[in-house]
Design a protein around this nucleic acid. Structure first.
Length: 911
RNA sequence: CGUCCUUUAGCGCAGUUGGUAGCGCAUUCCCAUGACAUGGGAGGGGUCAUAGGUUCGAGUCCUAUAAGGACGACCA
């Protein structure tokens, strides 16, 4: 037999399009299915529609990056919601996009240029930006290709890039508007500065880490005396920028010195001794050197005491001309040299090990320097007021709720946002500086003259905006705002505010909060109703994935190995409200196995439906025409619960509950029992019985793939295409609910549920005796079922075939107990219905095993009885507990005692 | 230092009005039975972090403690 190399499917099976291979092969299905969906336009949403809207804007990934497992998780959740809502009759719109990621992208391109020994400055701004665009065009499609691989059902026609014209217009409009309200201003302030980037960065881009360093004690000579003042510092090199030393006003040690001056060693500058309550008398020597241009606290002191600000650093964070002989040195070298020189002068006192937290640039990992510079800022205090209110009032809901506290806390301590970056890749700030009157013209459309003096000697601001500025406008800039075309207006009317924002907790401040701030300002409405926060993906030990640790996993390796559906399902089945997700390949394998189970269950069902013709009424059921078996009625009753609970769980964002329910229903009910129960019917001779079972089987399959589709779209669409009962496509078929599936679900039956429960318990009891006694499945057993209730007699007689087949029996007598000598006996009780399972063991087994089994059962029952006895003999329990709780316990007690007696009796029969 | 989260079977986690602890994987035993060994069947395994408290009754409510984590503030 020859095989097809790629799929391992025997070629004779490929010849028949309806035959499924015995293993699900994702690579064979995924790409083809995705292309078909896309070509058929199933992902498209309508700007105008009678359907209720449901919209999600994708958090735009870095345009030149790769998708990692975190994205895969993020997208899976969104696609689940979109597909579920689309199938539930919503006008579901998922808008994809990519981000220009200013610093990240610029850095990558600069690195590339460095390989050719070119710097961006050598190229010049225009040429460099061109290069970045080239880069973007080369890699910009990669992200979207990867998203298709995940199965993301986005409306691709709406895909937006943060530097698109429309978005740029939105950026300019918001900038100008905020500038006119004085919410955006330019000013000289102390900002976080990254040397390698030669740019300011925002507070959020600084990562603080505890770092081992030293506390240096240095003497400053007090002028006019021979006294020495000892200051303590972790940063001796900044003494070059000192413009004061400070003590606490109440410090008795230094009272007489306040107002005098000291001389800064090495540069011999005379600076004042000032007093401020900011100083902690108990810390260090109680004397602080003040460097207002290079420390945030010193900056404040410098402002209140009107000190001089001396900048000692260049843009690259090397010492500048104010550092005298130290000019040109990097900070660590300067520190070393200065300490050596202080030692030579005899002014160095001592050094002590000291832990302190140092800010590192989140992009380059360089130490961040506080630096005095001219930057653009957005004032936050006023914007924050409504942004707080919408979360407090519940207009925006965080899931899990605890994140709203984190959000509100940040809003309460919010500082002005430094929005300018000294980069070239991004939205260039729409401000023009006039060389004549030195004022700014800020305008949406490039001006030709200064609006203040009319001079034409104007030049545009070199800086670009922080990437997150355009991201903050994303919920409405992607919908066409501020364009007033009919299309744009309709889009916004239909889809704004969006329904969900799905993202990780790492960007709540960077992005979520800022979208709320600016959406309220410009759209006068919240950007989204619910913020679903998921955890970050970590490795199986809980360690953050990173390339340098070598523990990062490429989602597409996983997809190639296990299929996109398995990856998606493993995310969804283990997603627990906002907790970090510990990724395990072993678990993924488990869900790959589940996909295979779904595949094979369907394969079996379809092979038994070859002579089945779909009814003209489709998925509707006409009860009077169908003579269902008890098995059918039972599985349909179970389906009712599943449809109800899965929709409920999705509604409440309990995705893992929904996934788990489907997993267990399909594997442990449908495959393990329903298929096994119905095998005798499908291979039997009763044509009417068979026809009814085929119909129910076909209807069940149809429901199963529809219910499962949002979780694992590829395999379900593939199976759907082979179903006898179906519509155009699974992706646009209806999501089953107890309302829209009423007529079929009406075939379910509670009594049948009970009957099958009894039958299942009896079969399990037989299997238990067989298993514990290690009786080979090859041996067919003789069983007597002892019964003293007519209705139970009826149930078991009616299901004798099932008992015989699944119990692997050669003989099954239903009726009286009969002779119990050397028999295994097991009693089961299902809501009052009692069955005694009796199996003669003579000649089959070593009785010791059976005695052990019985003793084990007795022990367990006795434990139950003692627990129940303790409760029921407690007067206070009987007096206080609910009646039905007591009644239930009493019944349990009686049953357990009864069973113990029966077990003890059977024990004697082996002696 | 502050805020928040977590602590339940070997591992990963459920457990929403307090009423004899569940799921998946792993593990043990048996199995080639016409959908599936990526499978079937039967088992074993937990004093629910600790200490108090409320209650007839606490994994669940309250208080304190411990450990781990996230975020934020300060650090001369």
């Amino acid at each position: 037999m020859t095989t097809n190399d790629e799929t391992n499917i025997p070629t004779d099976k490929l010849a028949n399009p309806n035959a499924l291979s015995d293993r699900y092969n994702p690579t064979d299905v995924e790409e083809r299915t995705y292309q078909w969906w896309e070509k058929s336009g199933y992902f498209k949403a309508q700007d105008k529609s009678t359907k209720p809207p449901f919209s999600i804007i994708l958090p735009p990934p870095n345009v030149t990056g790769f998708l990692h497992l975190g994205h895969a998780l993020d997208h899976t959740i969104q696609d689940l919601l979109i597909r579920w809502k689309r199938m539930s009759g919503f006008n579901a719109m998922w808008l994809p996009g990519t981000d220009h990621a200013g610093i990240a992208t610029q850095t990558v391109v600069e690195k590339e240029l460095k390989k050719q020994d070119i710097t961006r400055h050598q190229l010049g701004r225009e040429k460099f930006v061109e290069k970045v665009w080239d880069w973007k065009h080369q890699y910009g499609d990669r992200i979207y290709k990867q998203m298709r691989g995940l199965g993301d059902s986005c409306d691709w026609d709406r895909a937006t890039f943060t530097l698109d014209d429309g978005v740029s217009k939105a950026v300019r409009k918001t900038f100008v508007s905020l500038y006119k309200k004085n919410t955006i201003y330019k000013g000289q302030k102390l900002v976080n500065w990254s040397g390698p980037l030669e740019s300011a960065i925002s507070d959020l881009e600084v990562e603080h880490q505890q770092t081992k360093s030293f506390m240096y004690h240095i003497n400053y000579p007090v002028d006019g005396t021979d006294q020495l003042l000892t200051i303590a510092t972790t940063r001796p090199e900044t003494l070059l920028g000192d413009t004061a030393v400070c003590v606490h006003p109440d410090d008795v040690r230094y009272q007489n010195l306040i107002g005098k001056t000291v001389t800064v060693p090495l540069i011999n500058r005379k600076i004042k001794i000032i007093a401020d309550t900011y100083v902690d008398q108990a810390f260090g020597s109680g004397v602080v050197k003040i460097t207002p241009a290079h420390d945030f606290n010193d900056y404040k002191i410098g402002k209140t005491h009107k000190l001089e600000f001396i900048n000692i650093l260049t843009k690259k964070c090397e010492l500048n001309e104010n550092a005298g002989t130290y000019q040109g040195l990097k900070i660590p070298e300067a520190r070393k040299r200065i300490l050596e020189d202080l030692k030579k002068l005899g002014l160095f006192v001592k050094e002590e090990p000291h832990m302190n937290s140092i800010g590192y640039c989140s992009r380059t990992n360089a130490v961040v320097e506080p630096m005095l510079s001219d930057q653009w800022f957005m004032k936050m205090d006023q914007l924050a007021i409504p942004a707080k209110r919408v979360v407090e009032s519940g207009t925006i809901r965080f899931e899990p709720e605890s994140w709203s506290k984190v959000y509100l806390h940040w809003m309460n301590i919010i500082e002005d946002w430094c929005i300018s970056r000294q980069l070239w890749w991004g939205h260039r700030i729409p401000a023009w500086y006039c060389a004549d009157c030195e004022k700014h013209t800020v305008a949406e459309i490039d001006p030709t003259a200064c609006e203040h003096c009319g001079s034409s000697k104007i030049s545009q601001e070199d800086d670009v905006l922080d990437t997150w500025f355009s991201s903050a406008l994303w919920p409405f800039s992607t919908m066409g705002w501020p364009n007033e075309s009919e299309h744009s207006i309709e889009t916004q009317k239909t889809f704004y505010p969006t329904s969900y924002l799905v993202t990780g907790h790492d960007i709540i401040f960077f992005w979520v909060a800022r979208m709320v701030l600016l959406s309220l300002e410009f759209k006068k409405d919240v950007p989204f109703r619910t913020v679903y926060i998921h955890g970050l993906v970590r490795d199986s030990k809980g360690i953050k994935m990173s390339k340098s640790l070598g523990n990062s996993i490429d989602p597409f390796d996983m997809i190639n190995k296990y299929g996109a559906d398995a990856l998606r399902f493993s995310f969804l089945a283990h997603l627990f409200s906002g907790k970090d997700f510990k990724f395990s390949e072993q678990r993924l394998e488990g869900y790959r196995n589940f996909m295979n189970k779904v595949w094979n269950g369907s394969r079996f069902a379809l092979s038994n439906l070859q002579d089945f013709k779909a009814p003209p009424e489709g998925t509707k059921a006409l009860p009077e025409k169908v003579h269902t078996s008890v098995f059918d009625q039972w599985i349909i009753a179970k389906l009712y619960d599943v449809e109800k609970q899965v929709n409920n769980a999705l509604e409440k964002e309990k995705f893992s509950d929904a996934a788990t329910m489907l997993y267990q229903f399909i594997w442990n009910q449908f495959c393990d029992w329903y298929i096994e129960f119905t095998k005798p019917i499908l291979t039997g001779s009763d044509a009417n019985e068979k026809k009814a079972t085929q119909l129910v089987m076909a209807q069940m399959l149809n429901r199963i793939v529809r219910l499962l589709h949002p979780f694992c779209p590829f395999i379900t669409e593939e199976i759907y295409s082979k179903l006898p009962i179906k519509n155009e496509a699974c992706i646009i078929d209806q999501y089953p609910t107890i309302e829209n599936d009423k007529s079929f679900l009406a075939l379910g039956n509670k009594q049948a549920e009970h009957e099958i429960d009894v039958v299942k318990e009896v079969i399990t009891a037989i299997r238990n005796i067989r298993g514990e006694n290690r009786i080979s499945p090859a041996i067919k057993l003789s069983v007597r079922l002892g019964i003293d209730q007519d209705n139970v007699q009826k149930i078991l007689s009616g299901n004798k075939t099932a008992l015989m087949t699944l119990g692997r029996l050669e003989k099954c007598d239903i009726g009286l107990d009969g002779d119990l000598m050397k028999c295994a006996v097991s009693t089961i009780v299902v809501s009052g219905d009692k069955v005694k399972i009796i199996i003669p063991l003579e000649g089959l087994v070593d009785f010791n095993e059976e005695i052990k089994r019985i003793q084990k059962t007795i022990e367990k029952l006795e434990k139950d009885v003692s627990v129940l006895n303790a409760k029921l003999s407690n007067e206070k329990f009987v007096a206080n507990a609910d009646e039905d709780v007591i009644a239930n316990d009493r019944i349990l007690m009686a049953q357990s005692k009864d069973q113990i007696i029966s077990m003890q009796e059977s024990l004697t029969r082996f002696q």
